[in-house]
Design a protein around this nucleic acid. Structure first.
Lengths: 223, 223
DNA sequence: CAGAATGCCTAACGGCGTTAAGTATTTGAA
DNA sequence: TTCAAATACTTAACGCCGTTAGGCATTCTG
């Protein structure tokens, strides 16, 4: 009796259709471009069908964002073998790249408040932060930070904040004509470098591997 | 014939009542807590009356925010006599203090996209940015920045981004239980100090006056 | 005192997320 | 094969929202 299996398969297919349609609207027009009625139109069902697959609209967006940020968290983990300072740098770069490449996802995840998922354990966003914090702890153990920086939690927050600021502003104020925006990727990297220079000891920064590719020109323009 | 005057006076009184009520809702619940119907209830008029005073809801919020940020821009201008580096530091501190003290205003101004006012000339937000840029130019003229920092616009954006990041995250993620937030004011100051250390030459940082009050404990907790 | 202008209201429009209620269709067992 | 139960899906609605149309008083102007 493959009935159950077929039904399950059909159900996940519809679920994927919803997510596909949602992603298209979301990437193009942000969270406000995703409406349940437009979604229903796109998948050729009536609106209530969506609620058989997702608790509410927020759950759809969160699923989209979690899928993207999972990749970011995985990228973080590939930096595990590097020197702590260089690892921090790479984490920052990956974060700002994510912000520039997925502005809608970034906005939803880090520029708006939204209810947390029920299952807190395996939230990729949380994992990424935990990885950052672990990196800071490794750095503390290696004594790379300047005098006065002893609290891992605080240092992690400083690093996150340092990487976050510029891409956040760029995301929100990209249309402001009174700012002559520079390339967001390049500026973000410069800010991360400067912040790290301000936090870590000079000799630790020197000690960290600095491959030439790190300062190579970025691929695309900022918008 | 004081009729016109009286009418004008009555009109501005109603306008102020709208703004007062809006500020109360806005400060407590953010932009979503301000609804035209609730506003109408509060001022004891029907909703359409509001449209005789403001083009739309956005204009109300913008007026509230402009009033607050005007104070910030004025605070900036009092730093004009200081050494450029110290001026940058004070600008950053004032910015993050504003973010912590007026979270709803800060969120609307710097964490969400919204239409710009028609009159671009005297936008305080724009003025504040212009002041920051001028300070950077003064710093460039005094040669305080490290090698590689030559673009005033970019440096201004780095400074803004450096101050912005942590308070922005704190504003949006204050409820996230997986972050053990440190005091936002203190952390923001540390991040600003670190970023400046990374951008300006060490001797220029030393040269800048560093009053003891700058590192004094802040007045209130972060929320 | 007529006519114009103003102030203010009720009612509605079209949008949103979400839910209730009902009707087909499909399923699994008697 | 028949029949009840479960499932899939629909239309219609609820209660919000920002905003606007239309109309009734009141007030001002000449």
């Amino acid at each position: 009796m493959g009935v159950k299996e077929r039904r399950q398969r059909e159900k996940t297919q519809v679920r994927e259709k919803i997510l596909d349609a949602a992603l298209e609207f979301f990437a193009r027009e942000g969270v406000e471009g995703v409406t349940m009625r437009a979604l229903a139109d796109a998948i050729e069902y009536s609106p209530p069908v969506i609620y058989a697959h997702f608790r509410d609209k927020d759950a759809i967006i969160r699923e989209l964002c979690n899928r993207q940020i999972r990749g970011l968290a995985q990228a973080f983990s590939t930096f595990g073998a590097l020197d702590p300072v260089e690892r921090l740098r790479r984490i920052g770069y990956a974060y700002t790249d994510f912000a520039v490449e997925h502005p809608s996802h970034f906005r939803f995840l880090f520029l708006t408040e939204h209810a947390l998922p029920d299952e807190l354990g395996d939230d990729p966003e949380q994992n990424a932060y935990a990885f950052l914090k672990q990196t800071v702890k490794d750095g503390l153990a290696a004594g790379v930070f300047r005098a006065g920086y002893t609290d891992a939690e605080e240092i992690a927050q400083l690093c996150w904040g340092g990487a976050h600021g510029l891409v956040a502003l760029h995301n929100i104020k990209a249309e402001a004509s009174w700012i002559e925006w520079r390339d967001a990727r390049t500026s973000a990297r410069r800010l991360i470098d400067a912040t790290l220079d301000g936090i870590v000891k000079p000799e630790a920064a020197k000690r960290a591997a600095r491959p030439a590719s790190r300062r190579a020109p970025v691929r695309r323009s900022s918008r």
